[in-house]
Design a protein around this nucleic acid. Structure first.
Lengths: 150, 150
DNA sequence: GGCGAATAGATGCATATACAGATAATGGGG
DNA sequence: CCCCATTATCTGTATATGCATCTATTCGCC
């Protein structure tokens, strides 16, 4: 065993966090030309799929603390990518992509698809599919939105 | 599909990051009585296994940027859990657990084992084992320490 | 031995993350 | 209609994270 080898970790949390750090660097390297951070790209993509949602609902979808979202959304609003509107319930902030946000997402999508494809090839489709399925199940299990099932 | 359901994500990076956030909250809740953050616990555990290592080597093991480690280690040194020594190469910082660090790790281990066991039960041993194996493979693949293999 | 490239960490800066507590708005009971 | 519990978000504070850049050493070569 080479000293420079990455040893396996027994802690599920540590193993996920380590993989996340490695993946984040890979994806942010790919997104660097667009100026988007991984979290920001994810939010643009989620809003594109979800349409207009409240901040709380977006926090739930991404399993991000709502107070964390407050600050990330402030940055993205500064860039003009996000429109924050008050809903009928005036406590809520309704969020949607601005036109500039849609353009930014469209600029980023090819870079994202490229890194997704490269990683899928490197891992192989079986591992790729298993990972997406299992990671989504972990999120469901841990956030207690109902037990996962096959 | 209930509105409150967590939708699956197609982005590997986003899915890992979301799971990491959820797992981190679960594990930090369990470690709260010890005052340890997830990263700090992981470093204590890694040092316990690795013995005395340089900061750069620890960064490699955990796939943490070495400059990130500088700050986390400063916090842990403040708490008295880590001893930083200069090595023969005087650029290096050699790290090892202090006696207080070993005590802190021993205090934390039962809490960690409990949350590990509970999560393993919730996911089932097959999924648990698959997840540890696959996440470790992703780290290897992405940090390019050699291709993963079955 | 001394110079320049390479290496190990540290520092400046910006974002990501979440908990505790504050604020604003809603909604139910009397 | 008013009070209070609840809910949605914001703020204060602390840690986590990494890139660009800087400093201190080391190493190779002449």
């Amino acid at each position: 065993m080479n000293k420079s080898t990455i040893p396996p970790l027994d802690c599920m949390c540590a193993s996920f966090r380590r993989s996340s750090r490695a993946l984040t660097q890979l994806y942010e390297e790919a997104l660097r030309p667009t100026g988007l951070r991984a979290t920001q790209f994810t939010i643009l993509q989620a809003l594109s799929l979800a349409g207009e949602v409240s901040q709380g609902r977006l926090a739930q979808i991404l399993a991000i603390d709502s107070t964390t979202l407050t600050r990330t959304l402030a940055i993205m609003t500064r860039h003009g990518w996000i429109a924050k509107l008050r809903g009928g319930d005036r406590r809520q902030r309704r969020l949607r992509l601005s036109p500039a946000g849609k353009r930014q997402l469209n600029r980023a999508l090819p870079h994202w698809e490229k890194v997704q494809t490269q990683l899928r090839r490197k891992l192989g489709p079986r591992r790729w599919d298993a990972l997406l399925r299992l990671t989504n199940q972990v999120t469901s299990a841990v956030t207690a939105q109902g037990a996962p099932h096959d």
